[in-house]
Simulated scan of single mutants.
Amino acid sequence: MNKNLTWFNVTALVLGFAFLYIPILILVIYSFNESKLVTVWGGFSTKWYASLANNQSILDAAWVTIRVGLLSASLATVLGTMAALTLDRFKKFHGRALFSGMVYAPLVMPEVITGLSLLLLFVAIGFDRGFWTVTIAHTTLTMCFVAVVVQSRLVTFDRSLEEAALDLGCPPFKTFFIITLPLILPGVVAGWMLAFTLSLDDLVIASFSTGPGATTLPIKIYSMVRLGVTPEINAVSSILIGVIALGVVAASIVTNRAEKERERAERAAFAQG
Rank of each mutant, 00 (worst) to 15 (best):
I184K: 14
L59V: 03
V188R: 12
V236W: 01
M224K: 10
S74T: 13
A206W: 06
N256E: 06
P231L: 01
V134S: 05
V123E: 06
C170Y: 07
L5D: 15
A137D: 04
S45Y: 00
V254A: 05
E232H: 00
F17N: 13
I125Y: 14
G242F: 00
F131M: 13
L87P: 06
M224W: 06
I113P: 06
A62E: 03
V243M: 14
D60R: 05
L75R: 02
L203T: 11
Y49F: 12
V243K: 03
V146T: 04
V155I: 11
I221Y: 00
A245F: 08
K91N: 13
V249S: 10
A62C: 04
K220F: 15
L15C: 12
V112Q: 13
I221M: 01
I22P: 05
L154V: 12
A62K: 02
I244H: 08
F122R: 07
L203N: 07
L59S: 03
L15A: 11
N55G: 02
T133N: 05
D202W: 01
R226H: 09
E263F: 12
L227A: 15
Y30V: 00
L79T: 07
C170Q: 11
L13C: 14
G126K: 04
I219V: 14
P218Y: 04
E259G: 07
S31V: 00
T114Y: 04
V134T: 08
P218D: 03
G191N: 05
Y222F: 14
P182H: 04
F90I: 14
C144K: 01
E232P: 00
A73I: 02
A137Q: 05
T133S: 08
I24D: 07
Y21T: 04
K260Y: 02
N256Y: 11
A76I: 10
V188T: 10
E263M: 12
G16V: 02
T180K: 05
T86L: 14
I58N: 02
Y222D: 04
V103N: 06
A12N: 09
R267M: 12
L119A: 04
R226Q: 15
F17Q: 11
T156C: 08
G130I: 12
P186Q: 09
D128C: 03
T65V: 06
V14Q: 11
L185T: 13
W48N: 00
A214Y: 07
V40D: 13
I241P: 02
T180Y: 05
C170L: 15
T142H: 09
L118F: 04
K47W: 03
F44G: 01
A53M: 11
L15V: 10
K220Q: 13
Q272E: 10
L37C: 11
S51G: 07
S152V: 06
W48Y: 10
T139L: 10
L166D: 01
G187D: 12
D201M: 06
A190N: 03
